[in-house]
Amino acid sequence: MEMWTNQSNKAALQAWVKETGIQLVQVNGQRKYGGPPPGWTGNAPPPPGSEVFIGKIPQDIYEDKLIPLFKSVGVLYEFRLMMTFSGLNRGFAYAKYTNRRSAQRAIATLNNFEIQVGYLIQVCRSTDKCELCIDGLAPSVQQCQLLPMLQELTTGVLDISLHPSPFRKQRQLAQVKYISHQAAAMAKKALVEGSLCLCGDQVEVDWLKPNTKQELQNSPVQAFPKIFPSGPDRKTLSQGLCGPEDCCMPPGVGTVLDYLNMQCEERQLGTPVFLTKCIQKNPEGWLRFWYQVVIPKYPSPFSGFIWLKPSHSGLEDHEMAKNAVALQLLKALGCPVV
């Protein structure tokens, strides 16, 4: 439910939309005009460098003020105002022109423009950033866990690599590349607002800064093949990332799940409660499971995705998934696993 703090501004926007017949489409936390605009006859979208970033916008200023202002210096191809669920803008927007010259004119003319008494907006060139960094991942997190989770939560993942975090000891940082700036921006919004939690760890999501990227290039990287949309490839399988078969439990302990239950009991954490769901099967027979595990006295739940291939162990698919997840949880909890 939208909660407008300035009813007169809301009424002005609605009157302007009705008077001009302009169409504003709200999707994924942004309200968009154009892309292309009505009457567009071009065969291709504007070239790179045609978009400007607009910052420091008062939260109760809307398109009825912004679009005419930015149209005054050139023909707009697209205008995107970032919105909150409460009906306020998020303080920034993007204006894409039909050519670079209009974008340069917008920067020269409208940067530090007083849009409201005491409020100067910022207008600068929009950079096509396509890479995010996810910092704070546990050392036990592997790409076969992280990739399917990101594919489920976001769209347009192009490449991913894991590095030791330069900012947090004993943690990993994931460098994630998307197919476009817009895909990366939508992914960042989804991950930040979704409070991404992987294997019980709260992580930080931000744009990958040039100095951080340079530092990562000089650090070790866990090699990972390009995206596998239908399941793990042979290299992934040979690394044994997706099953508990190679794990040896202490004498007298049955399955990995039994061992996890025993460890949680010894630590007085309570018995883990598992939720698993098979959501995909690829042509090679691999199964993709979503899971969530709640350990009663652990601060946060564990959730994610895992690939498994049915074996001849006699375990049902869901029991096999629980054992594979239990192995990951044992590592995350720092339990001894051989």
Rank of each mutant, 00 (worst) to 15 (best):
L76Y: 02
K10P: 00
P37D: 08
Q170R: 03
G91F: 03
Q23L: 14
L308A: 11
I61F: 14
M1I: 15
G49C: 06
V75I: 09
P220E: 08
P299R: 01
I160F: 12
G194F: 04
L191C: 07
T84I: 04
G34P: 04
A185T: 10
G270C: 04
T20N: 07
G240K: 00
P48N: 06
G243P: 04
N99R: 03
Q280M: 15
V253I: 11
T212G: 09
L257D: 14
I57T: 03
D64Y: 06
D258E: 15
V157W: 04
A184L: 02
L147S: 13
P283T: 10
V203G: 06
Q214G: 11
G21R: 02
L198W: 08
R80G: 07
V221R: 15
G254L: 08
L241Q: 12
D206I: 06
R31C: 14
A11M: 10
E215Q: 13
V338W: 07
Y77D: 05
R171H: 09
G314L: 01
G118V: 09
R101Y: 07
F224D: 10
P244L: 06
Q151M: 12
L198M: 12
A223S: 12
P68I: 02
D60C: 05
N211E: 15
D317V: 09
V203E: 03
I295A: 09
G29I: 04
N43E: 13
I279V: 13
L237H: 12
I54S: 00
W207Q: 05
G334L: 08
M186E: 15
N111L: 10
C335T: 05
L198G: 02
L269M: 08
V17Y: 09
R101S: 15
T212P: 14
D206H: 08
A183W: 06
Q175S: 13
C248I: 11
G270D: 05
K18L: 10
E204T: 08
T41S: 15
V192A: 14
I67F: 12
G194D: 02
Q263A: 10
T5I: 11
T41C: 12
I295G: 04
I57Y: 01
L237P: 03
F70R: 00
P139Q: 03
P46F: 00
V221I: 15
Q239M: 13
D159Y: 01
G55P: 03
T20F: 02
C264F: 09
H163F: 06
P210G: 10
C248W: 06
V325E: 06
V293T: 11
K188P: 08
K188Q: 15
S165M: 01
F228M: 11
G243N: 11
H318F: 09
C335G: 03
F92T: 04
I179E: 12
G91H: 02
Q172T: 10
I306M: 10
K322R: 07
T155G: 10
P47W: 09
Q280D: 12
V141R: 01
K177G: 07
G254W: 00
S313G: 15
G42Q: 07
E2L: 14
L76W: 00
P37R: 09
L330I: 01
D233R: 08
Q104W: 01
